[in-house]
Design a protein around this nucleic acid. Structure first.
Lengths: 365, 365
DNA sequence: TTGTAAGCGTTATCAA
DNA sequence: TTGATAACGCTTACAA
């Protein structure tokens, strides 16, 4: 493989000149420029990125550390990151499946010298110390941390506000006995969504009832299993808020088997707005989480941190969620205004598929 | 940031010794080992990857070049790659949204020195020359190439076999007038699926009828628009093979609106087995494409190429597809044996969601 | 068993 | 405007 030395030799100049030409430095004779360009093209010279980043101390790359890569959420986050990074001419180094804080640190460690910054999604609440260690060496943006993060920037999902808005919607539809299927106990998203639920009920003057709070774990199965419990309740809830769409899917399936009509006998709402939500029977009212935006903002934060005068300064952003009203909760008196969903950010135009898809209404929260 | 020199100074040894200890070289005094480990820990020394790969000439990373990152297919490919790479202690450098061959080459170029091999999905058929250029500098595995690739290894999806098996299934169900909604004209997956369709019909002695071959473009909308055409046909087809699931979704939606019962009045089948396929009404019979495996195999190929005696030797693998029988095509006489779907490779256990999901039958092809 | 020193392929700082 | 040459931080002969 040709190196800068080979090009220099072929062009009959020094390696310094080759470097200058290739990096577009001013103050170069047209002659040198021509000779170097020609030699580089002839040898099909590809500069070595490792050598370059060793001297310049920048890698033109971001690292991404995730607990998992499974499911739409993570793939959308990645897509947002990739897209934004590409716009900034940065590459993306991915490392996923980190089950605990130690793995995150070791992955970050192995990226030393290869990335200019890190986007991290912490696997659990005990990662605070890990983040601290990492952020001493890299600019770091933490995605949706579930704990207080001081030393680095964060981008979070508006879980609380989303749940609050959704339950508010249910209340406005006239529901007063609203059950909830909670997410896993230690999960921060789950906790925030539950807080939003409580808050909305509290403000509406609805008494909290612990029997209406069913423990789930974000799986379809746990939603399925919640059904008999819900049906048995007295008074039976007229609406159920599943803390994520997967559980709503399981619940709908079980209710359908049990012959309970949705939304007439029981309204069902979810959270996340996964792809299948609109194809369910009935289409699921839920809260849209913009994972793409989460990733894209993280990149922007990282870029602006590098350019700012005080790189240690950190900001905390919250990506808003959107209430997506479909048919699983019925409608308020008069027919609702139907608004088609906007295309996903950065998604390829799907040629007016709007005409095909179930309509829905969106409200930012 | 501490460098190897700082560690050497603190441990009172030479940098060579530090390097040896950190890389686990044998023939070292316990004393040196202890002192170096201690100093490294104390300084929280993180080796510089760029420097390391500059000297060792290996980066412990693979590059991934994709046309897009949108949709389940690509995210599953990435997941397969990431998972397999992690098993081999390799990192993954991603670059997507390449619209043409030039962009692919320039992305590959920018990865020089930073990766040990490349997994490439070519954006179009004119990429052959680009691949040639790239494979002169890296070991390359091409994902699902639509053209003959000699100079590097490939992993492909069994599009032909999948379509052949699916149409065979329709024929066995007694269908003789089977329409097809084709994919975009230049698309290789689309072509292969169409070939499989033709072949199956041909072998069954069914005359090809050009009016049964409707042009689509893989979008939901094109499937939707195919419906009136199909309904108007005389004789009306008793089954339709949509060359991908998106088009099947659009078609189902249109047929439902038109009041045509699926599968009784018209059977519908798709290809890809996207996540929503099993949630459609009725659940869609389709062909499962294992994108995860596609990615994972690419990594394995790359790894084995590096270890083989002749790294220029290349192999061509085909990932089999699976016929997934759900309810959109009806059933053969006696009730079909119902077999639940296996978990996705490498996916987290979803705790027996089998009980919740629509059942389906799978056959490898 | 350890240290010295020569790279790896760039960029950047001097002089010229 | 150009060319030597010294970094950058590491690994690895080769010597000791």
């Amino acid at each position: 493989m040709a190196t800068i030395r080979d090009v220099a030799r072929a062009a009959n100049v020094s390696i310094a000149t080759v470097s200058r030409v290739l990096n577009g430095s001013p103050r170069l004779s047209e002659d040198a420029r021509r000779r170097v360009s020609r030699a580089a093209a002839e040898l099909d010279y590809w500069p070595n990125g490792a050598a370059r980043s060793l001297t310049t101390r920048r890698a033109h790359a971001f690292g991404v550390l995730l607990p998992d890569l499974y499911g739409e959420f993570f793939s959308e986050v990645i897509r947002g990151i990739d897209h934004a990074a590409r716009g900034e001419k940065f590459q993306v180094l991915i490392s996923s499946s980190h089950a605990n804080a130690d793995e995150v640190v070791s992955a970050a460690r192995s990226m030393r010298g290869r990335v200019d910054g890190l986007i991290v999604m912490a696997p659990d609440e005990r990662s605070a110390e890990a983040l601290d260690r990492i952020s001493r060496r890299f600019p770091v943006v933490v995605l949706n941390p579930g704990f207080g993060v001081e030393e680095c920037s964060t981008v979070s999902v508006a879980n609380f506000a989303g749940a609050y808005a959704l339950v508010g919607h249910l209340l406005r539809l006239g529901h007063r006995t609203i059950a909830v299927i909670k997410g896993p106990p230690e999960n921060v998203d789950a906790e925030e969504r539950f807080r939003g639920y409580k808050q909305a009920l509290g403000e509406a003057g609805v008494q909290p009832t612990s029997t209406l709070e069913i423990q789930g774990d974000f799986t379809e199965l746990s939603g399925y299993r919640a059904a008999p419990e819900l049906i048995r309740l007295d008074p039976r809830p007229s609406a159920v808020f599943a803390a994520n769409d997967c559980m709503a899917v399981g619940l709908l399936s079980a209710l359908s088997t049990a012959g309970i009509k949705v939304p007439h006998q029981m309204a069902v709402a979810g959270f996340d707005d996964i792809a299948i939500a609109r194809y369910l029977t009935p289409p699921l009212t839920t809260v849209h989480v913009d994972a793409y935006e989460l990733g894209a903002r993280a990149v922007r934060l990282l870029v602006s941190a590098k350019q700012s005068s005080d790189p240690t300064l950190c900001s905390h952003e919250v990506v808003p969620t959107q209430l997506v009203v479909r048919r699983s909760c019925g409608s308020t008196g008069p027919r609702e205004e139907l608004v088609s969903e906007p295309a996903r950010a950065g998604a390829p135009e799907e040629g007016g598929a709007d005409g095909v898809l179930p309509h829905s209404r969106r409200l930012e929260s």
